[in-house]
Design a protein around this nucleic acid. Structure first.
Lengths: 143, 143
DNA sequence: ATATTTTATTTGTATGTACAACTAATGTCT
DNA sequence: AGACATTAGTTGTACATACAAATAAAATAT
């Protein structure tokens, strides 16, 4: 443990990362209201619009979610008519529908709003650097 | 959005922070097995051992959890006999029991193991710096 | 070609967490 | 003091996510 911390709560990556996720979730839920989707579903849609035909397996890997969670996410996006499943052998490939693709604009807009919001509070430089570092950590942890 | 990102997925704080939280959760769940508690409960116990008698309200604020979530956390810790509630007026103050206090050692051990684990993968300097930055972001976002 | 193992997905179930509505206590204004 | 507003906590409900077991297809070994 780092010697420069008063309490474990500020120097444990588990505690701090979860806290941050919860706080940013709150902002994100707000910003993504205009899309009609929860932020994680919007994230998934964006992946699919960029690369149609990814398998569920790959999708869960990209988002660091378990396969079972991905099944449920896709179920819900199908219900809303935003994606379709194409089964080939044991794999299932996911494609956005036209109506799914049409979400792109509002999702990007929501991302922009969210970005502006947290930059306003934390300062842009710090926010961008922090995000890049967290991304780096994610990459490393994925082995 | 930062100009240096290929995709939104790596430059959106929401996406990256959630991903990180999920990955670190996995490591934490592992490390905290020796305590018999899920990491978030251990976190709470640690807060209570350090400062017995915090109100539920303050506890949820410290952990960035909603009051209703805190009610449920405390319910569970009471069932296990690790804390007790002392109601005074409309506030409820929480105290660790003897058996609760005795968890301190194994929780600290788990924290140590977890810290070593992620430092080994990410490098200690980077890990410590990242945690400090995330803590800073948390503080700022809490206004 | 059959048996075995591995891989992708699904389903049942459990837990973490939040929101909204509710209760009860306290504080404020007149 | 009585009416209204605020605050702390609880409860019902919903959703995100995970784990474990089940299914089914593909790959491998014999």
């Amino acid at each position: 443990m780092s010697e420069s911390c008063n309490t474990y709560h500020e120097c444990c990556l588990y505690f701090t990362a979860n806290s941050l996720a919860r706080q940013v979730n709150e902002m994100a839920e707000d910003a993504f209201k205009i899309t009609g989707l929860a932020p994680s579903y919007a994230h998934l849609m964006l992946l699919l619009i960029e690369e149609p035909g990814l398998s569920q397996n790959i999708l869960s890997d990209r988002m660091n979610l378990k396969a079972s969670t991905m099944t449920r996410f896709i179920d819900k996006l199908m219900q809303k008519g935003y994606v379709e499943r194409v089964q080939e052998g044991r794999s299932v490939y996911i494609y956005p529908t036209e109506s799914g693709k049409s979400l792109k604009k509002s999702i990007n807009q929501a991302l922009s709003i969210l970005f502006d919001n947290y930059c306003e509070v934390m300062g842009k430089d710090f926010a961008v650097k922090l995000t890049a570092d967290i991304h780096k950590a994610n990459t490393i942890l994925k082995e």
